[in-house]
């Protein structure tokens, strides 16, 4: 497997270092050739930077991709937004040679060049395509048979599809495949593909952001979901933090929000403490308690 740089992104390193923890645990366990490299900046965040200055958006992303190109690495990120932004710019520059030349004439001033050779992938399609369901099953000590999991894809894991090219943009399958491989039921629900709405919190519309979170959480509560599983720090912020805020106001949902790397880590025998899950604002203990209390045999993965 080709070496790859991990692009952690601002949100994970600033707000959710425990996501970095569980991701490193999983990457180490699979002995994947990941590298931390110097020089990354914000990806940059599209809804903020692209709205104000498209040129700065392109220049910043192109510079980050150039750092990976230089080392002949690929790039994997546990953040959907980062991958989507970097891939959007990479695909824009690949089809627009004039814009690429303009960006490179800037980057040349600091001794860099955007080539666009690095493969940019989000962690979920990477695990699905490059690691593979079979290898994942081999590493698992316990499966999640009997657990109802509501997946939330996160818009930017799969869209825009012309840049990411990794799954069906309106009816994706790969994340579902990974969850089913772990023996859990992947709930099919009405609002499954609805955007989390966290973007509204970034434009001073907190109440509307809460409304978006509420719509999905209410459906999951009615369906009896044991947890919501996702792989995006922005969606995590929306469903963990904003659910906690709504619960403080008296609205009860009780839906633990679990990062994919945490779920995988649990199945491989790591504890919630080791994976940093005790740092969540919505308590994950009910999920773990139910899982641990399920009747044996939960099945070794080779029997799945």
């Amino acid at each position: 497997m080709k070496e790859f740089a991990v692009f952690w992104g601002c949100t994970i390193q600033t707000r959710f270092p425990f996501i970095e923890k569980s991701t490193r645990i999983v990457l180490d366990s699979f002995k994947l050739p990941y590298r931390d490299i110097d020089g990354f900046t914000c990806c940059p965040e599209k809804s903020l930077v692209n709205n104000i200055d498209h040129g700065a958006f392109v220049m910043t992303a192109a510079r980050n991709v150039a750092l990976v190109d230089e080392k002949n690495y690929d790039l994997v990120s546990p953040c959907t937004g980062c991958v989507s932004n970097l891939a959007t710019v990479q695909s824009e520059l690949k089809v627009n040679p004039r814009e690429k030349d303009e960006v490179n004439s800037l980057l040349k001033e600091v001794g860099r060049e955007f080539k666009g050779t690095a493969k940019l992938q989000h962690l979920i399609p990477f695990f699905h395509d490059a690691v593979g369901v079979h290898a994942i099953k081999q590493k698992m000590k316990r499966d999640f048979t009997g657990m109802k999991i509501a997946l939330h894809y996160g818009c930017h894991m799969i869209r825009p599809s012309h840049a990411l090219k990794n799954d069906d943009p309106l009816n994706p399958k790969k994340f579902d495949n990974l969850i089913r491989a772990m023996g859990a039921e992947s709930l099919q629900y009405m609002t499954k593909m609805m955007c989390c709405g966290q973007g509204l919190d970034r434009v001073d519309e907190h109440d509307m952001a809460l409304h978006f979170a509420r719509v999905k959480l209410r459906e999951l509560k009615a369906l009896g979901a044991d947890a919501m599983v996702l792989c995006c720090p922005s969606c995590f912020l929306q469903f963990d933090n904003n659910q906690f805020l709504m619960e403080k106001e008296g609205e009860k949902f009780g839906i633990p929000v679990i990062y994919y790397t945490e779920l995988l880590g649990l199945s491989m025998g790591f504890t919630a403490e080791e994976l940093g899950m005790t740092s969540h604002r919505v308590d994950c203990a009910p999920f773990i308690k139910k899982w641990e209390g399920l009747p044996a045999p939960r099945g070794l993965c080779k029997h799945l």
């Binding site: 390193q13 600033t14 707000r15 425990f18 490193r24 931390d36 110097d38 990354f40």
Partner: peptide, 22 residues
């Protein structure tokens, strides 16, 4: 960047020093 790495939490979790930014 849009924020600085949360150093006390990183230390508690046993995470490595964050790499230099550009």
């Amino acid at each position: 960047r849009l924020g600085e790495p949360a150093m006390p939490a990183r230390k508690k979790l046993g995470l490595p020093e964050p790499k230099a930014t550009g």
